[in-house]
Design a protein around this nucleic acid. Structure first.
Lengths: 356, 356
DNA sequence: CAGGAAATGAGGTACGTTCCTCAATTTTTG
DNA sequence: CAAAAATTGAGGAACGTACCTCATTTCCTG
């Protein structure tokens, strides 16, 4: 049996009320007494039963997740993963609310963030490009004691409590080795595509990618990045043009977005499956393209894990508990057709048995 | 506010006691009343507060994990991951106890399993090769209402409640594509090494590996598997011999175990980093070898995740709750130096000795 | 329709906390 | 040293559930 507050009170020679005062940092206890109680806690190895505590408090972890209103498949998959994690977490007194902001409007975002404290949120997760206004807004949240974590895209200078996501430079390096090795070290050229929404992430990926290819695969020439600005039309144009002019292209690295348009151009040009195509994020379309052999490899992060980690981290921060770093580390996953995780059947109804 | 039993009682027009009888499947309630209560539950969307229920029951999930007493780094890492997961789960009323059995003695294993019900375990996780005695023992556990899950190595005919681990055939296929692509499709020969402890897993991996190479990489010749019987000496011998006789060998697929001995032979022969070496399981030694460039790629499963999943699944089975399939799916991870996850726990770093 | 059985209700205690009030004690201060 | 202030104790209600007992009501059976 784990020790309870009663055991501590007895061990420390104080009353239950005093133990409670110490445990919950309530005022009006002498230094000496506090020490005595803490010693008893240490000696007995007491750990507060969080579930009982939360029951007594009738606490709920009301968490806001703030995403850009971009319509990309990635954002949509992410939103779905979060919603699902939120509903599963309802049993652990967690409430997740999704908020969207206009992607190009940092001030609207700041206003949204500013309004959150008044809505009783106890934690905020945020995916957004870093701007000065945003930094201030995050500082504001944290000043009010609301833990704030960056999601997917890091905010290194905003002073967040945590970053839930991957190191994009390492992700780029990973794409780099995969490309280099899959091309047998060369010779050949590689096209790099990217849009600019989350600019810093793209830059990081590109840096990692180049780093590895330059160092380890000198036989491969990496062409200049092509900006697609999220437009399928632009993508069609630039890719078709470049492929026509550079017959040496053996690989394409799609750093972010536009995967649907890309597979389509390739299909149009009769190149499906003939090039080594590496992209990011295992969206439904990418999954299908991987199975069809139109995409060779995907560098991705597990969105379900990402979503659950977000909630766990925020709860831990709210409770000022330490994280399990190993568990919260988001991995850079390499997915080929052969290790593609089975799509868990969405029609599998969660039958909940009340009768046990 | 989530509805409580009180709300259900009111809605169904019955007393609290009756609601309780229905919820906990106690006898002495008319069919009609049961239906009324269940309708109220459905209507209000009631979900029992498991934390409050467990508090009231003072339930603890007492779980036994049964592993072979093999001294391999993999088993040891697994045991550590489980122990850690167990201690972290103490806050969720979960107690994990590790039991080892003599690897070659199925009867000792069966005896051990037979003794578990009397020790108040509510769930069992088991890693063992499948034998008829084992199947009976598992049936015995399940007949006593103790959920039993297979760990790492599946027991397809034992009727377990769940399998926590990866599809080894798919893992072999993954190793296969990686090897095939990394060798640029050939020409060349590939050596395959394996010991036989968990024979079926090795066979599955080998099948998957061959499948892919035969189908997609006809230019690569896969040599016959070399059995090392877990002996470093044997491994040294056979590998040295084969490498001497087959100068075309460009890749080595180590299906399981002996990674330490392997990297050492390669170092002795001056071949470190010159071959494409793919192995399984990211043990401390493999991690170091990956960083040093002695191993090219690792096909692995996240042991921390595996351990946590085991506990979650067993708890869910005990409570007859549905699983979150997506969360419990163990992924086949491909790890290169570039996407190697940072070692989060420095105190868990094992001493790596190349000279032994 | 009486008698017995079955079903239901009423109410309590417990789980390990939080949070509150009020009284009793100790310490500090003027 | 007395009064004021600070500290500590004692106790209770609540959170949502489980599980128990005993009384009451309803149902079935002969």
């Amino acid at each position: 049996m784990r020790p309870t507050v009663i055991d501590i009170a007895r061990e420390a020679g104080v009353s239950l009320a005093t133990v409670d005062r110490v445990l919950n940092a309530r005022p009006g206890v002498r230094e000496k007494t506090i020490r005595a109680v803490n010693e008893a806690i240490a000696k007995l190895g007491y750990v507060r039963d969080l579930t009982a505590a939360n029951l007594a408090r009738s606490r709920t972890y009301r968490v806001a997740v703030v995403l850009p209103d971009t319509e990309s498949q990635f954002i949509q998959s992410l939103a779905e993963a979060l919603t699902k994690a939120g509903s599963m977490a309802a049993t652990s007194r967690t409430e997740l609310h999704l908020h969207r902001f206009p992607a190009e409007d940092p001030h609207a975002l700041a206003a949204l963030l500013g309004s959150l404290p008044d809505r009783d949120y106890v934690g905020v997760a945020l995916m957004a490009p870093e701007t000065p206004v945003l930094r201030d807004a995050v500082r504001g949240l944290r000043a009010k004691g609301i833990p704030t974590v960056a999601l997917v895209s890091d905010l290194p200078n905003a002073g967040c409590d945590h970053f839930v996501g991957v190191d994009n430079r390492a992700a780029g390096r990973t794409a780099g080795v995969m490309m280099g090795r899959f091309l047998g070290g060369g010779p050949g050229q590689v096209m790099v595509l990217g849009q600019s929404l989350l600019a810093r992430d793209m830059i990081e990926r590109r840096r990692g990618f180049d780093e590895v290819l330059q160092r380890d695969f000198p036989g491969i020439e990496v062409l200049q990045s092509l900006e697609t600005h999220g437009s399928p039309v632009t993508l069609h144009q630039v890719v078709a043009e470049m492929l026509a002019n550079a017959p040496q292209v053996r690989g394409i690295y799609a750093m972010g977005g536009g995967n649907r348009a890309l597979t389509q151009v390739l299909a149009n040009m009769g190149l499906s499956g003939k090039l080594t195509v590496i992209c990011h994020e295992l969206t439904p379309h990418v999954r299908a393209a991987l199975i069809a052999g139109e995409i060779t490899a995907v560098i991705t992060q597990n969105l379900g894990h990402l979503a659950r980690s977000t909630l766990r981290v925020l709860r831990a921060k709210v409770d000022r508990l330490p994280l399990d770093e190993g568990q919260e580390q988001i991995r850079i996953e390499i997915v080929l057709r052969e290790n593609l995780p089975a799509q868990p059947d969405p029609s599998a109804q969660a039958h909940i048995d009340h009768t046990s």
